[in-house]
């Protein structure tokens, strides 16, 4: 298993303790295309942050590619994030004063890859996502869909073990949302990228092969969805 969570608990303590994750057990295998679905406040974002080593958990175990992710130093956590995890965020989180290609290069910069080499590689990824002519543009000159594709290129460039997408279509219109989900699906099928998408939209979840429902901090139903006809909202539609 690529990802294994055993009894993961997380409590936020802002004034009064808030038990967000109540013993999560979860396994995700290499090459899977999974969505984590739940209402806001269900703990899905917290789960994603823990999976992405952006946040720590209180008790339990998180194994990523055979490594126990617990009590890591900042430096180590940064290194694991850099090499094993790619992030796609709802608000894109591109650096505004850097061009598209510079944004895509950034993870390689933190790996110490030479200037020339990382530029070439970033151009290659932008090309694959059809953004060659936008390489020199700044994020505020691009559309939401383009920005999200730049972010996907940035997530892909280090060949991570998993890509974590937090509401990847949240800021996009329905047409672009479909395009982005198609792109993610294509990456999963053709490049065998392991994808975990967090969403509260059933339409988005329906694009994935497996839907993990989370409610009040516990995993509910795990729906196998190879045919992409899981929800009551009908196949391949993304509700907005």
């Amino acid at each position: 298993m690529l990802i294994e969570l055993k009894g993961v608990n997380k409590t936020y303590d802002n004034g009064q303790p808030l038990h967000v994750l109540k013993g999560i057990d979860l396994s995700i295998d290499r090459g899977e295309f999974v969505s984590i679905m739940g209402a806001s406040g269900s703990g899905k974002s917290t789960l994603l942050n823990i999976l992405g080593i952006l946040d720590n958990y209180d008790t339990g175990e998180y194994w990523l590619d055979g490594r126990l992710i617990k009590d890591l130093s900042e430096r180590q956590a940064a290194d694991y994030r850099n090499r094993m995890i790619g992030f796609v965020f709802q608000s894109f989180n591109l650096i505004g004063f850097k061009t598209a290609v510079e944004n895509v290069e950034l993870p390689l910069f933190y790996q110490g890859v030479s200037r020339h080499k990382r530029h070439a590689l970033a151009m290659e990824y932008l090309d694959r996502l059809g953004l060659t002519e936008w390489a020199k543009h700044y994020p505020n000159e691009m559309s939401g869909g383009q920005k999200q594709r730049v972010a996907i290129a940035r997530a892909l460039i280090t060949h991570p073990q998993i890509i974590l997408a937090d509401e990847p279509t949240g800021a996009l219109d329905s047409k672009t949302s479909v395009e982005v989900m198609d792109l993610l699906g294509q990456l999963n099928r053709e490049e065998k990228v392991t994808l975990i998408v967090v969403t509260h939209e059933s339409g988005v979840a329906n694009c994935t092969d497996k839907i993990i429902h989370i409610k009040d901090g516990v995993i509910g139903e795990i729906e196998m969805n190879a045919q992409h006809n899981a929800s009551a909202f009908g196949a391949s539609t993304i509700m907005k």
Partner: peptide
């Protein structure tokens, strides 16, 4: 935050 998420150490 972005930099740290994509692998910048302290």
């Amino acid at each position: 935050g972005i930099r740290k998420a994509i692998g910048a150490g302290p």
